[in-house]
């Protein structure tokens, strides 16, 4: 019995660091092959994505695929976005230290963690109770004191902490809630992905201009070049 325990402990001691090394390597590779190679050059974003342990934020069955170039299912019909999409969305809002960012749709918590590596405060809201609880406890375990997570309806934003320098809506929505536009600073940016689950083709950037007008810009991380035979 004692011998079994001893061997188990020894194996754990040997395997765990090996796993950590592997994930570390996977992350570096992910940033090089999936982000830099596709034109993401915002250094704080790249550094954040080199640091955040994505594999700790996915369901156990998906851990082995955590750093693959694709979105993964996290349950409740939701996904953790493809790493490239997270990098692209982060780069679009040009995050810097000192900023305060609101995220609507915590999901796995990965986007919040990436932002938290760069900005001062991240406020994140998740409407699905189970997802909110899981993400909150995982983010706490991973040690992000600057992420403030709550379960609730993202429609209302988080008025007590408004205005925000940027808002990331990670869950696609058929309309942009007016309270969110109100809580966005003048000159601030809001990004929203557009697309069915498991597709990452479009991103919408909403700009609140100083003259009060609101404009949107359709960003296409993946550019479709219509086929022309001639």
């Amino acid at each position: 019995m004692k011998l079994t325990l001893l061997i188990s402990a020894l194996l754990l001691f040997l395997i765990a660091p090996a796993d950590q090394d592997k994930y570390h390597r996977d992350r570096q590779q992910m940033v090089t092959a999936q982000l830099e190679a596709r034109g993401i050059s915002h250094e704080p974003t790249l550094n954040a994505m080199r640091s955040v342990e994505r594999h700790r934020l996915v369901p156990p069955a998906q851990v082995q695929y955590a750093y693959e170039d694709r979105p993964l299912p996290i349950g409740f019909g939701q996904t953790i976005s493809q790493p490239y999409m997270v990098g692209y969305m982060t780069e679009v809002i040009k995050p810097t230290a000192g900023m305060k960012v609101l995220e609507i749709g915590t999901g796995s918590g990965y986007q919040a963690a990436v932002l938290a590596e760069i900005v001062d405060e991240v406020y994140t809201i998740e409407i699905v109770e189970e997802l909110a609880k899981t993400a909150k406890s995982r983010l706490e375990e991973m040690g992000y004191p600057n992420i403030h997570a709550k379960e609730g309806d993202g429609y209302f934003g988080w008025e007590e902490h408004a205005p925000f320098d940027a808002i990331i809506v990670t869950a696609a929505s058929e309309f942009i809630p007016p309270p969110l536009i109100k809580q966005l600073k003048e000159g601030g940016k809001m990004v929203i992905p557009v697309g069915a689950p498991f597709t990452t083709q479009q991103l919408m950037l909403v700009e609140k201009q100083k003259d009060g007008k609101r404009k949107t810009r359709n960003l296409l991380p993946v550019r479709f070049v219509p086929f022309t035979r001639n």
Binding site: R214, K215, T216, R217, N218, L220, R223, P226, F227, R229
Partner: peptide
């Protein structure tokens, strides 16, 4: 003006379809 698209593909294809140049779009689009 207000909802900017990154390219003119939607407009040019729609124009071709409306102007009667539909067959080549049907043939060549993905």
């Amino acid at each position: 003006q207000y909802n900017m698209l990154e390219d003119q593909v939607l407009f040019s294809l729609t124009d071709s379809i409306i102007s009667g140049n539909r067959e080549s779009i049907y043939e060549n689009y993905d």
